[in-house]
Amino acid sequence: MTMMSRRIALGLPLMALAAPTLVRPAFGQAAWPSRPIRLVVPYAPGGTTDVMARLVAEQIGQRLGQPVIVENRPGAGATIGAGMVAQAEPDGLTLLMSNSGSHGVSPSLYPNLSYDPMRDFTHVALVVTSPSVLVVTKGHPAQDMAQFIAHVRRAGEIDFAVSGVGSSSHLTGVRLGLALGVRVLAVPYRGAGPAMTDTIAGVVPAMMDSLPSAAQHINSGSVRALAVSSATRSNRFPNLPTLKESGVDVVNSAWFGISGPAGLPAPIVARLAAVIRESLAQPAMITRFEDLTGAPPPESTPESYTAFVRSEIAGFAPIVRAAGINPQ
């Protein structure tokens, strides 16, 4: 063997180790991912699910060497998009931005749900948790939470827009109304984007939205923020009180993660989970998440996210029953 051939032979293992972005295929099979990945967002563009999905998709795509294309499939409280992914081939090329609506609330809300949130999915990683924020139109008479409480109690009802039936923001609003002893009139939309558009226009007087999707509108002055639903104040809006410190015993946060169809091969799950962890650990991503949500991305594994989803299903069930929400 010549010196040059020895160098080439010795360099081959190093070259293989330097290309970790592909799952090694069995003989005769294509490497994963062999083509672009579709990430289904079960809400309309403009909401937190969509914003977070696009941030993560860009980072994942860079590390996997294939573009991750976000596809919005809104409707029926996020169950249309989720159901579509549940029926997809478990090849790692169709993923879902699973969330508290599609996998936490819907199992209790829809008696004839087309999918089982545990049996029909492979849960890979929790990506973000986010509190809801109560905002009102610029012309609303309430300047703060105390005035808002007095206003809705005089009216005997609370009228607000939500991103969809059974969304975390919807349940936060329902819990707010129940805590204040007033009738709840929630107006569901096919995503936070169109709901916020109507709130800004004054079609509805208020909105319960997730903080990341509402942040830009709060900063621009298009709407007035009154309180957040987290246990503590947001680092992003430190002057904004929580519902609890405003005298309303309501604490609730939405969550979003990456899931695939049931039967996703273990090597793909492991690679995807690692890539998500790498992506969320980037300083720029941590800063971006803190800017949007007031908190850094959570640490998660396939096992912990699976256990988390299961616990959320059990936790939301009594809330849905108490609220008496009609998905129709």
Rank of each mutant, 00 (worst) to 15 (best):
S169C: 14
I319R: 10
V105H: 04
G324N: 13
S102V: 02
P265C: 02
V174A: 13
S304P: 08
A44S: 15
A317Y: 02
R6G: 02
P33K: 00
V162P: 06
P45K: 01
S5V: 12
L14N: 06
E299P: 05
Q282R: 12
W32E: 08
T21A: 15
P13V: 05
R310Y: 03
S108V: 10
I69Y: 03
A44C: 03
M3C: 05
L55S: 08
R119P: 02
R63P: 09
P42Y: 04
Y43Q: 12
T306F: 01
P25K: 00
A215W: 05
N112G: 04
Q328P: 06
P141W: 07
T21W: 15
P111H: 08
T2C: 12
S167P: 02
P238A: 09
L64N: 01
A254S: 15
V152S: 05
L180Y: 04
P131I: 05
Q62P: 00
L12K: 08
I200K: 13
P205V: 04
T94M: 12
S167Y: 09
G81T: 03
R183V: 10
G181R: 03
A266D: 15
K244D: 11
V204G: 02
V165A: 12
G92C: 04
A295I: 10
P261L: 05
G247A: 05
